[in-house]
Nucleic acid binder design. Structure first.
Lengths: 215, 215
DNA sequence: CGGGATCCCAGCAGATACTG
DNA sequence: CAGTATCTGCTGGGATCCCG
């Protein structure tokens, strides 16, 4: 841990002792989508400098929130992944992100926009129900995400799922309508209306995406 | 808002733009217990310096999270209170505090311990049920807290409640046993066992405190 | 070329003294 | 009591350099 601490016997203070420094929670957020390489993190965190990213990663590994892993072939390179302790930050990250939503009317000039961050916000509005375990692949441009719809949680990872039950391909604009536009159509509604390209059994898709309604 | 921003169109980044600076969330946490005067905050935040506290308070008022209020007589002095936007941070504060709980095995030497912070943690473990609206006063030394037990939320404020349904007086040690000791007796169990001093209708207390069991 | 380490400087945090 | 003013030192930001 760090020298500059709050010295308070309080869960919040303890948490901030570990993840309260600048950039730290943003790194955790990006890793919630899956393991990332140093260069990927550097590219996705606009404005962070190499020295600072390296320092944060080192600290987070020391703190036990991250670990270096070797990606499976064909990549086979090193990457950083959340440990269980790191992944346990998800509720806190989501709660903060939910609160910050009030400042997200629209992107400012020079704001970086990222599809992965947007999809993570689905976790907050997901209201499971149904007993299934469906995997939906979302393709936006070159990037693919695996949404696993479980009874009471939604898993969102950036990767190509093995055998998705359905595939939805759409553009950034449609995704933004689905996720952020007040009164816009939800992802499920867009799929239902065939406003986006889909593959897979439509009735299954209907079932699988229902929990994503009401966004 | 601040010059040093993340420039990311993401709820988390937006939130950290506003409350990501050092000390900020700790100030919010203390104000969750009710309005506080400058000097009280200064005293409860060990290590913060006068200039920094003043700066943070100014920024938070500008950001619309805090407002200066005049306390009711007989105090009649100025104090800082959360606005609705500020109070909306509660779930995020609680989620972070819950995560930080894993680092709270025991207070370190030179850790400040505060009964108010401890009682705030009750909000996380509260599982309402019951249809009531009971107010329980908790007295620890000179300090009094009002716990209002609602069907699906617990309100915790540091003040003397008007007409509490019950009053529990206990020492810091008992409170710590109830809140933090693994396998220790919950506040409700301590009350039931008459291990702490109580006033009020015991059966009502039984009812009112049941949601606090299982801590 | 990915994955860092080094150096330098600006700005924020920390300590103390002082003031309305 | 509720801050402001001033000084200092650390941390984060920016550019460059290094190494396998």
């Amino acid at each position: 841990m760090r020298a500059r601490r709050y010295h308070q016997f309080c869960g919040l203070a303890r948490a901030l002792d570990v993840v309260g420094e600048r950039w730290t929670l943003l790194i955790v957020r990006d890793l919630l989508l899956g393991p990332r390489r140093y260069g990927e993190l550097l590219e996705r965190l606009p404005g962070i400098t190499t020295n600072l990213l390296a320092k944060r990663l080192r600290e987070l590994v020391e703190a036990g929130l991250l670990e270096k892993v070797t990606l499976p072939p064909p990549a086979s390179t090193e990457a950083y992944a959340l440990t269980q302790a790191g992944a346990a930050l998800e509720p806190a990250v989501m709660a903060l992100a939910g609160w910050g939503g009030r400042y997200m009317d629209k992107p400012r000039r020079d704001d970086r926009v990222d599809v992965g961050w947007a999809l993570l916000s689905l976790k907050r509005r997901y209201r499971g129900g149904g007993g299934g375990d469906r995997v939906v692949q979302i393709r936006v441009g070159e990037r693919s995400f695996a949404l696993r719809l479980l009874p009471d949680s939604l898993e969102v990872k950036e990767r190509v799922p093995d055998r998705p039950d359905a595939i939805i391909s759409l553009g950034v604009a449609e995704l933004r309508e689905a996720l952020f536009t007040e009164g816009g159509r939800s992802l499920a509604k867009l799929a239902r209306a065939r406003a986006v390209e889909i593959e897979g059994d439509p009735s299954l898709l209907e079932d699988a995406l229902r929990p994503l309604d009401g966004g």
